[in-house]
Simulated scan of single mutants.
Amino acid sequence: MLQLEVGCLAASVTLTLKGRLTAYEVREAFDRLTGTLPLVEKRDCYADLLHIQAIDMAGVQLLLALERQILTNGKSLRVLTNEPVAELMRTLGLGRLLASSTEAF
């Protein structure tokens, strides 16, 4: 089961996802993330994936859809994740989404 926690500051929103982000959970994740759109429309967004146990291409596509929505509002999406997921994202050419270890959430 996927869990979503939302933290909101004046300039940014942090979406903490826990569990699995695969084809089996992506619809649930989409529905939950859609509910956060009013918050991320006016703020930069950080996705905390440190507690994601598994991610597949459906999960990556969901992150790209979220990024596209955020970019249309002139804001940015940054992802904090573990090294295996970060390596996958770099391999797919998505390193631009990765937050540096010095960025504060």
Rank of each mutant, 00 (worst) to 15 (best):
Q61L: 03
L50E: 09
L17Y: 02
E28G: 06
V13R: 05
R27Q: 12
H51M: 12
S12Q: 15
A47Y: 11
D44I: 10
A54L: 08
L39Y: 10
K18Q: 13
A10Y: 07
R27K: 11
L49Q: 06
Y24G: 14
A23V: 10
T16H: 05
G19I: 04
A58S: 14
A29D: 08
T36G: 07
L21R: 00
V60Q: 02
G59Q: 00
G19R: 03
K18G: 11
A23H: 15
T34V: 09
E25I: 02
A23M: 07
L17C: 05
I52G: 00
L64W: 02
T16N: 01
L63C: 06
R32W: 05
D56A: 01
G19M: 00
R27I: 09
L63D: 08
A10L: 13
L66S: 09
C45L: 12
F30N: 14
A10I: 11
I55M: 12
Y24E: 15
Y46R: 11
Y24C: 07
L66Y: 02
L37F: 08
P38Q: 01
G35P: 01
L21W: 07
E28Y: 00
E25L: 02
A11T: 14
R27S: 12
L62D: 04
L39P: 07
L64S: 08
A54G: 02
M57D: 05
L39E: 15
T14P: 01
L66G: 00
D48I: 03
E28A: 11
L49H: 03
L49S: 06
T14C: 12
P38R: 06
S12L: 15
T14S: 12
Y46F: 14
G19W: 03
E28Q: 12
H51D: 15
K42F: 06
L66E: 04
C45N: 00
D48C: 04
Q53R: 10
A23L: 08
T14G: 04
D48W: 02
V60I: 14
D31E: 14
R20I: 05
A58K: 05
L15H: 12
D56W: 09
H51T: 11
A29R: 08
L17E: 04
L49W: 06
I55V: 14
V40F: 14
L15T: 13
T22S: 11
L15Y: 13
L66N: 00
D31T: 05
I55E: 01
L64C: 13
P38L: 02
Q53N: 07
L17W: 03
Q53M: 07
Y46S: 06
L9R: 15
S12Y: 09
S12K: 14
T16Y: 01
I52Y: 01
V60W: 08
G59R: 00
G35I: 08
L37V: 13
Y24H: 13
V13Y: 08
L49E: 01
T36V: 12
T34Q: 15
L62A: 05
A54P: 00
